[in-house]
Design a protein around this nucleic acid. Structure first.
Length: 203
DNA sequence: AAGTTTCC
DNA sequence: TCTC
């Protein structure tokens, strides 16, 4: 019997099709203003397989020279990130159990081949407020474990419209994306998966 | 180290 | 707090 780690909440089908389409349109506008870029691993400069952008007052970025960080400007255009769409704030308010507002929405685009290795979200100064993750487009195999790298993990499928909340004991759970299942959704005309991660950065 | 790997 |  598969049991999610404590503090990890999977809400299948939280967003209906209309809501998902509303989100896609909002993200389309974000990407038009803040183009997707290829993040680099610290030190090595090795490109990650996802492409990303952000909206909100802060965005998560990484490059060879400066590593993982939050900053207020797009690393390529130098412009401020687009505002957080209201639809994202509504979802945050519904599931985060926080009175604080999210400062960052990281937008990760996964092509068929993209993966995300197991990691913790710990670049935020606020490690108490939950992290909220929204899946759109193609399904993926999501892996989640405990708060140490070597521990037990489990995996399950995430589908378009699902929401995952990492809160409480689950806030620092290791998690990643093992694979994308191509052509499993009609939401995105050109396929692929979009993950939206809402985070509070400052306490 | 959001790196290797767990997928199939 | 800054950096990876």
């Amino acid at each position: 019997m598969q049991v999610l780690p404590k503090g990890v909440r999977h809400i299948p089908g939280f967003l209906d099709r209309t809501r998902q389409e509303q989100l896609v349109e909002a993200i389309r506008l974000v990407v038009a203003e803040a183009p997707l870029f290829v993040p680099e691993m610290p030190k090595t400069g090795k490109p990650m397989s996802v492409r990303m952008t952000n909206c909100g007052s802060l965005g998560w970025v990484t490059d060879r020279d400066r590593g993982y960080r939050y900053q207020a400007q797009h690393p390529v255009t130098g412009h401020p990130w687009p505002a957080m769409p209201d639809v994202l704030l509504e979802i945050w308010n519904a599931v985060s159990a926080s009175n604080k507002t999210p400062e960052a929405c990281l937008v990760n685009f996964y092509s068929e081949e993209a993966r995300m290795g197991l990691h913790q979200d710990r670049d935020e100064r606020d490690l108490e407020t939950a992290v909220v993750s929204i899946s759109l487009g193609d399904s993926c195999l999501f892996r989640v474990g405990g708060n140490t790298r070597g521990g037990q993990t489990m995996s399950f499928r995430l589908e378009s419209g699902d929401v995952v909340v990492l809160g409480g004991e689950g806030r620092l759970a290791f998690h990643g994306v093992d694979r994308i299942y191509p052509n499993t959704s009609t939401l995105l005309k050109h396929g692929g998966r979009v993950n939206l991660t809402l985070r509070r950065v400052n306490p």
